[in-house]
């Protein structure tokens, strides 16, 4: 009777267009995040995540329209993150049709933001994204993992494991843990980091960064995470959501 392990494709969206190259056949417009989200929905995705990487406010406004179009055509939950700075930003995304909203840098600068959002909209709305890396030599944290910002280009000195625990305490309904070292490598998830965070976080935990083969998802799932997220392998058609689920099921995990 247990809840299924979720498989979540993530789309990087810039001004209403999918950023990374997509090699899907049979799509009318492979750059349209809504069409791609529908494709993932049809493949059995348990949720869809949009990461808004728009630099301009016009681009961000366009993303809101994309979110609305997706919410009206995709009937699985939709999480939207990227550049969320305030309760007002969260409200705009929820009104546009997002079910959950990811916060990252703004929560590091102002941790009360997590509590403010949770009080206003409920903890289930707040996904705190943690971009973490293994500490470079000379700047250790207690856990050996450090929170980064700016896509991993800046260290913060914050202990990633402690931060994840604090975010949950402050009202996050879910933690999205992205390994900056593994991100884009397709060399597998950072299992050690996932395990360290799983040990201290009792809200749902999403593993992100490094997926390359179906086996990687199975290894990540064994750490006790509640969901596995990937971008490139799904965009480039290396793997389908169904193949990932088949592998997870074969390894004894409960999937939808």
């Amino acid at each position: 009777m247990s809840v299924a392990l979720r498989v979540i494709p993530c789309l990087d969206v810039d001004a209403g267009r999918v950023v990374k190259g997509v090699r899907f056949e049979g799509l009318r417009d492979a750059g349209d995040p809504v069409e791609l989200a529908r494709r993932y929905d049809a493949e059995g995705a348990d949720e869809i995540t949009f990461l808004d990487v728009s630099a301009s406010s016009d681009g961000r406004a366009t993303t809101l329209e994309t979110v609305t179009a997706a919410a009206e055509q995709v009937f699985v939950p939709l999480t939207v993150g990227g550049g969320v700075r305030s309760v007002a930003d969260v409200e705009a995304l929820l009104r546009a049709g997002a079910d959950k909203v990811g916060v990252n840098t703004a929560a590091i600068a102002r941790p009360e933001l997590i509590t403010d959002i949770a009080r206003r909209f409920g903890a289930q709305v707040v996904v705190v994204s943690v971009d973490a890396r293994r500490c470079p030599a000379g700047t250790p944290t207690e856990s050996g993992f450090e929170v980064t910002t700016h896509g991993g280009r800046r260290g913060t000195g914050l202990d990633a494991v402690a931060w994840a625990a604090e975010a949950a305490d402050r009202g996050a309904g879910e933690i999205l843990l992205n390994s900056i070292d593994a991100d884009g490598t397709t060399a597998g998830f950072d299992v050690e980091m996932l395990t360290a965070v799983r040990d201290v976080v009792d809200v749902p935990l999403v593993a992100s960064g490094g997926a390359g083969r179906v086996e990687d998802f199975v290894v990540a799932a064994a750490t006790g995470v509640d969901a596995v997220l990937a971008a490139s392998v799904f965009h480039f058609g290396t793997l389908s959501v169904g193949e990932v689920k088949d592998a997870l099921r074969a390894a004894g995990h409960v999937v939808r």
């Binding site: 009777m1 247990s2 809840v3 299924a4 392990l5 979720r6 348990d46 903890a123 289930q124 309904g173 879910e174 009792d202 809200v203 749902p204 509640d226 969901a227 939808r256």
Partner: peptide, 13 residues
Amino acid sequence: APIVPHMGWSPVR
């Protein structure tokens, strides 16, 4: 439950 919120796809009776 060990993990709360309950977030995801569950069967029903």
